[in-house]
């Protein structure tokens, strides 16, 4: 367990290395966008303009937070695969199964950390806006009064929906990591297996074949298996009735899919996926 924790710590540090830079870019970019969008660039400073500026900055910051979270998520995906194929990281005396789990878990931990920092930054900007913008001040107070009123009506169903949605977001994040690893490991294992002279040509043929097969399955297949696998995604796209039962079913199926890919990736990683020669 000790090596698992130490490995996690080092990986977490690696993956959170660029967080501060990313947040600074986001803050400066949203500031610049607010500045140039504000009053067509001609800023006449008075209290109203000053307070409205903060509201605009906050809005752009919150909107761009989604984009930056997406960018950060993609960088963690990329780093996962970089660590997996690196001889330096693979030489560490830890079991491959634990190494793979550590890698994925540290990425998710880094993502969570980034989201928390985004929330903190939004809150700080929110407090500043709240102080300067009287309109925003009023809207926020009204909103909190509304929330306070609705909180008394919160029942188990609403709680389940709320936590279910969070759970679904978490499972989707893991699903992304697992599926990217699966594509990477399986294609690499295949390339290592096929004859060298022909492997690239074979690989292209097989890739085309797999794409055609997936497309055909997606359009034609109506069997229960595909219905089950596609259910969580149909739920998220709003193609189901959207009841609590649907959410529960979607969560369970997403969990099963994640476990399946986790198992598959672990086998591929520990048995077939070699580290790149590091000279």
């Amino acid at each position: 367990m000790a090596i698992f924790n130490r490995y996690f710590t080092v990986l977490f540090r690696l993956k959170t290395k660029w967080i501060s830079i990313l947040l600074i870019i986001q803050t400066v970019a949203s500031f610049a966008m607010s500045f140039f969008n504000f009053n067509n660039g001609h800023v006449y400073i008075n209290r109203t303009i000053f307070s409205n500026f903060f509201t605009l900055w906050l809005t752009i910051f919150v909107v761009s937070a989604w984009l930056f979270t997406g960018i950060f998520y993609l960088t963690t995906c990329f780093q996962n695969e970089r660590v997996s194929k690196s001889q330096t990281w693979r030489l560490v005396p830890i079991d491959d199964k634990k190494l793979y789990f550590d890698n994925i878990l540290s990425s998710f931990g880094a993502l969570l950390f980034f989201v928390i920092l985004e929330i903190i930054c939004t809150l700080i900007l929110g407090v500043v806006t709240f102080t300067f913008d009287s309109q925003f001040h009023t809207v926020i107070i009204e909103m909190f009064t509304d929330i306070g009123r609705h909180l008394q009506q919160v029942d188990l169903e609403i709680m389940f929906n709320f936590f279910g949605a969070i759970m679904m977001a978490i499972l989707c994040a893991f699903f992304g990591y697992f599926i990217i690893s699966f594509l990477n490991y399986s294609s690499r294992a295949l390339l290592d297996f096929l004859p060298q002279a022909l492997s690239k040509a074979y690989f292209r043929v097989i890739t085309v074949f797999v794409i055609i097969l997936i497309a055909w399955l997606a359009i034609k297949a109506n069997d229960i298996g595909l219905q089950i696998i596609s259910f969580p995604f149909r739920f998220m796209m709003g193609e189901t009735t959207g009841t609590n039962d649907d959410l529960a079913l979607a969560l369970i199926l997403m969990l099963v899919i994640n476990l399946f890919f986790w198992l598959l990736d672990t086998i591929l990683f520990s048995k077939f996926f070699e580290a790149r020669e590091g000279k």
Binding site: S86, Q87, T88, W89, L91, P93, R276, G278, K279
Partner: peptide
């Protein structure tokens, strides 16, 4: 854990 290998530090 019981060996030390000259790695190219590519990681």
């Amino acid at each position: 854990a019981h060996l030390s290998f000259t790695d190219g530090l590519t990681g």
